[in-house]
Nucleic acid binder design. Sequence first.
DNA 1: TGCGAGAATAAAAACGTTTATATTTTTTCT
DNA 2: AGAAAAAATATAAACGTTTTTATTCTCGCA
Lengths: 356, 356
Amino acid sequence: MATEMHRARRAPPPTIKTLAEMTGYSIATISKALRESPVVAPATRDIIYKAAREVGYQANARGMALRTGKSFQAAVLMPVTAARDYEWDGVEYTQTLSGISQALDGTDYRMSVHIIRDAADGAEAARRIVDQGLADGLIFSGILAEDPRIDLLVAEQFPFVSMGRCRKDLAYAHVDIDNEWAAYAATARLIAGGHRRIALVNPQRRLSYALDRIDGFVRAFREVGLDAPMELIAEGDLSTHFGRQTVIDFLQFDDAPTAFVCINESTTLGVLSGLGALGRQVGVDVDVIAYDDINVSAYFTPPVTTFYQPIEVLGRTLGQFLLRRMEGEDPKALRQVFRPTLIARQSDDLGGRLKR
Amino acid sequence: MATEMHRARRAPPPTIKTLAEMTGYSIATISKALRESPVVAPATRDIIYKAAREVGYQANARGMALRTGKSFQAAVLMPVTAARDYEWDGVEYTQTLSGISQALDGTDYRMSVHIIRDAADGAEAARRIVDQGLADGLIFSGILAEDPRIDLLVAEQFPFVSMGRCRKDLAYAHVDIDNEWAAYAATARLIAGGHRRIALVNPQRRLSYALDRIDGFVRAFREVGLDAPMELIAEGDLSTHFGRQTVIDFLQFDDAPTAFVCINESTTLGVLSGLGALGRQVGVDVDVIAYDDINVSAYFTPPVTTFYQPIEVLGRTLGQFLLRRMEGEDPKALRQVFRPTLIARQSDDLGGRLKR
DNA sequence: TGCGAGAATAAAAACGTTTATATTTTTTCT
DNA sequence: AGAAAAAATATAAACGTTTTTATTCTCGCA
């Protein structure tokens, strides 16, 4: 008997049945009252609420889930590129998750995170989530120019919000950054500063926003009647190592670039690291413009000019849109493209030496 | 009728009942066969498995959850300090999550992430997870010297693994880094390099590992017969801003430190930023030793000496331990303390000028 | 041949909800 | 007052499992 003592099972949590016994109403009435159904009389509703509060009733998520077929989960696909061993990577995702979770706060939805290692993995995860009903809605990023996940989810009418847009003309909810504009503005600023040999450190072309950035890059040159130096577009993963290697490679050219436009904070750090290794000074030998979504560029030495868009805000919007989408709102109404703000921390004209 | 066309409901997924109809066995037998119960005849088990494969049967998680009372969720508390606006922070958590999810891969468990903003928030989240049965197991970090979550979960016998140890002597599963040793070794290295005024950039003292680090810091001095400069222990959040501000503050002292030992990569970046702003050069005016769990210090300019322990490995261990703990394994068997490796990227003796 | 034991399978209940349908109570109107 | 309509509540079934208990079948053996 002493052996049974030590695990003193806690009293089973109150169920709808407990409330039925307490109040004398049937479980159906209890359920309807708690769902705020208009068919139950206000007076009884009050009685039931009081009882619920008294015993600290919490609807059992498993029971609800089984009956309604919903999971009350908002799934997020979180990419972790296994690029090199434990590379600094995807660091902005904590902020994204934070934003999403803020939006979900106070609702019945929980956030479940599915780690994906590449695009194929992501497509498979989406498939599984839909087929097995693992979640009621889905958020994902790293959108490809032709993204099978978007095709799938649109076809299945599964609620989702993508961070980024694909190149197909489909009706789906999304949040994005105006990458075309950001690349355009960065490039144009450097051109105005006198630069002509400008490198674009870019992700792989199958990523939709890689194309957006190339578009902006090209437009900036075309607008002043020049051809964009397509050979200075580096393509790779978004790692620090890639940024560093790109600098080391490009600066060996005869006609080496005098400026770098970077995709994100980790490549920027790599670029700065590469420049440091080669003994080149930012603002003197080379100019660098970064894109940053977690406000870290201010701490680089020297601080670099940055296009900044706090990604937590995007995350929050993603979450809000997903909630509305799960309520059945038209995806066409759920689209937002953010234009980052320019934070000029350098003059980006190599101290005027390039200007004529 | 045309209006009904467009949403062509997909066929409902096969259930255990479908298999019963297909094979002629009862649902009870199907269930037992799929659970590999020894009471069902091997021949019928095979038939049932074949049928299951044929229709692509997937057990409905909601049904299982309701019946068994389990949620098949492994919850992770992810801290996001809302320190300053959108600060670079908690970036290592992506790697932690990646590691945990790797361990969970191939099991029935999914990972749900709960964002917490401070310690009180974390305690509340743990409470909710236990009370509402939101998960079958829990992983969390940011352990306080006296952590209410550990007390709670031990008392409730709820399976969990903590990243870090509290200061109470309780039996619980944990994974940790040997912070005492890391701080000791870093400090000792600097002392050996001739430094005497060494600053420790540390988190708040209520965090258990802050105390561990102070212990190590003090031990290094005591070992050579010196008193540790307690006034050079900075206490704050783990943000980049904090690192930068600490440098700016400390270097105004008459008896300013000649070296900094940093908690993590983001404070290190801040320290380097502060030094850059004051025009001090690492390795010449000041030495810096970092702690790094996402391998980013190699890219700082200049690269700094680092204690490195890839946090993804910790994450994987956390996940493995949690699985075993949820199986009922004794928590005393589930403890591991990692000792980071020293990566010496500088001589850390200010070019020998400090040595006598 | 028939009995009992053991093996294999089936039936039924349960987990906690929601919801369609049925029943009771109250209100309204003539 | 009584019938019809409306409002309020109750009953019962269902969601997909697992598990306890019951039933049937097979086989060895007297």
